[in-house]
């Protein structure tokens, strides 16, 4: 088993594993320092093939890139990037893999709840799995959502606050997580809305403290929005959203 895994370093280094295999191997990498070192070396070698393929891009590309980065916020160094390639892992993959993948994504939300960063080492992974179990229903729901074939991850930021949503139209569910969301003024709450052309549907009041929320989502939702509402929440939004997450790719 571990030999079989160790033999996958080459295929992993050149992205030649299928989604579930990739997720499983990344799980293995976290506990195999030797494999991680070999992957680094083989990527260095493969990178030479990339350099050898160098080609002159269109001249106007530079202006577009520089313009875009001038308007793009950099990720904080502590946050682990979401392993995009693993998010479509199928239900057929091993339980451990599914937990690992779920942990890495749920980690974003759990980091907010438990004040820890997403896992990196095997020890942290174990801790993350424990935290998912502790999170009970919500953790299970997040994991389920994450493994929906059409699961997508969306980000938005406003001021210092960052919002992340994991969305599956197929399941009609969303997990909404925030970081550094300012507390609502006294007698007010933040409320999450599913927005479509007809208007807004409440997805619930955010309890504060950046606690992740799982909610049902109407199928024709195009945006998620957060507004400030009187305590207890409103039937319909009474203020403009201060944060908007577009669900269109």
């Amino acid at each position: 088993m571990s030999n079989e895994m160790a033999g996958l370093t080459g295929a992993y280094a050149v992205d030649a594993l299928t989604g579930p295999e990739r997720a499983e191997f990344e799980h293995h990498l976290a506990e195999c320092g030797e494999c991680a070192q070999e992957v680094r070396e083989l990527r260095e070698a493969a990178g030479m093939l990339g350099v050898a393929a160098a080609e002159e891009p269109p001249a106007e590309l530079k202006g577009r890139v520089l313009h875009e980065i001038a308007h793009t916020r950099q990720e904080p160094p502590t946050a682990q990037p979401v392993p995009i390639g693993t998010r479509k892992a199928r239900a057929t993959s091993r339980l451990a893999t599914r937990l690992a993948v779920a942990a890495s994504v749920v980690g974003i939300g759990l980091a907010a709840v438990f004040g820890v960063a997403a896992w990196q080492s095997q020890q942290e992974l174990d801790q993350a799995q424990q935290r998912i179990e502790q999170a009970g229903e919500r953790g299970a729901e997040m994991a389920r959502l994450l493994h929906a074939p059409d699961a997508r991850i969306m980000h938005a930021s406003e001021g210092g606050a960052v919002a992340t949503a994991i969305v599956s139209a197929e399941l009609g569910k969303v997990v909404f997580m925030s970081e550094h969301m300012p507390a609502a003024p006294e007698d007010k709450v933040h409320q999450l809305w599913a927005i479509n052309e007809q208007g807004a549907t409440s997805m619930g009041v955010l309890t504060g403290g950046d606690v992740p929320v799982t909610a049902d989502m109407p199928g024709d939702t195009t945006k998620l929005g957060v507004t400030t509402e009187p305590a207890g929440g409103s039937q319909q939004p009474t203020t403009d959203p201060f944060m908007l997450l577009s669900l269109r790719a």
Binding site: G7, G10, A11, E44, A45, A46
Partner: peptide, 13 residues
């Protein structure tokens, strides 16, 4: 192929 891929990259490295 899995093995040859790894061997090939090791040789290249």
């Amino acid at each position: 192929v899995k093995t040859r891929l790894r061997d090939g990259l090791i040789r290249l490295r």
